[in-house]
């Protein structure tokens, strides 16, 4: 069955990016629907860049695909991994945004991230743990920053693991706190498969981001991260 959104996608793929299209994506990123539902054929990086006003990079966000891209899609090689996770936290959007925006705080609840070093207003250097004592490093660019609402980032050109994503803070209805949504996309060059990414991070990206958000919530609500590591037990 052809749905309304299919039609929209088709009509867009025939034309150039328009202001209204960018607005539509801005509303998806800022709305209450599942972002990944609208992202099936799109690159998150492209959309985030378009919303931030970078029209040049917008080509990456269209559905037009070269033959080579279609082949790699069909074989599962070079396929982007997209993850979306949301948690509601019993704190104000301002508190949560402020903690997150200090990127050097992030390793406190992101277990696989060893360190984040802020280089300047837009750039930061990330070091993550990989299996067998290895580390991977990359530089990230802050591509959209809306105080108390949204932080979007993308790895700089040439990163070993190309990644982009955003975290969004929205007041929950009633007195339910703040809805925190993370959407991330990983693109791995050189035909690395999903399993390789999983090995790189030690677990499935979706579970990893779920765990990170769970720890972020624990930290923000209670001031500590629940643990049993180091407790005594019988042999």
């Amino acid at each position: 069955m052809e749905t309304e959104s299919d039609k929209t996608n088709q009509s867009q793929s025939q034309g150039d990016a328009t202001v209204s299209d960018t607005e539509r994506w801005a509303s998806i990123v800022g709305g209450s629907a599942m972002v990944l539902m609208g992202l099936k054929q799109r690159s998150l990086r492209g959309i985030l860049t378009a919303i931030a006003g970078g029209s040049l990079a917008y080509h990456g966000a269209t559905t037009d695909k070269s033959l080579q891209e279609k082949v790699t899609d069909a074989t599962g090689i070079n396929k982007a991994i997209k993850v979306e996770k949301t948690v509601t936290i019993n704190r104000s959007a301002e508190d949560l945004y402020n903690y997150w925006h200090n990127f050097e705080n992030l390793p406190t609840f992101m277990k696989h991230v060893k360190s984040v070093q802020v280089l300047d207003l837009r750039r930061s250097h990330w070091v993550a743990n990989a299996p067998m004592g290895q580390t991977i490093e990359w530089n990230a660019d802050l591509i959209n920053d809306q105080p108390n609402q949204l932080i979007a980032w993308a790895s700089e050109e040439g990163a070993e693991v190309d990644n982009s994503g955003f975290v969004r803070f929205q007041p929950a209805p009633g007195d339910r706190g703040t809805e925190v949504k993370v959407v991330m996309e990983y693109n791995v060059p050189g035909g690395m498969l999903t399993a390789t990414i999983a090995k790189l991070f030690g677990e499935e990206p979706e579970q990893q981001i779920g765990d990170e958000l769970r720890r972020f919530k624990q930290l923000m609500e209670t001031g500590e991260i629940a643990t049993t590591e180091g407790q005594s037990r019988g042999q």
Partner: peptide, 27 residues
């Protein structure tokens, strides 16, 4: 129970969001 999450604050202590370090196993 953590005492800080919405469930604890509504006296639903066994539904605490934050006190289970292995919550991912339960999900």
């Amino acid at each position: 129970s953590c005492g800080q999450c919405r469930y604890c604050q509504h006296q639903e202590w066994s539904l605490c969001d934050n006190s289970n370090p292995k919550g991912a196993l339960q999900e």
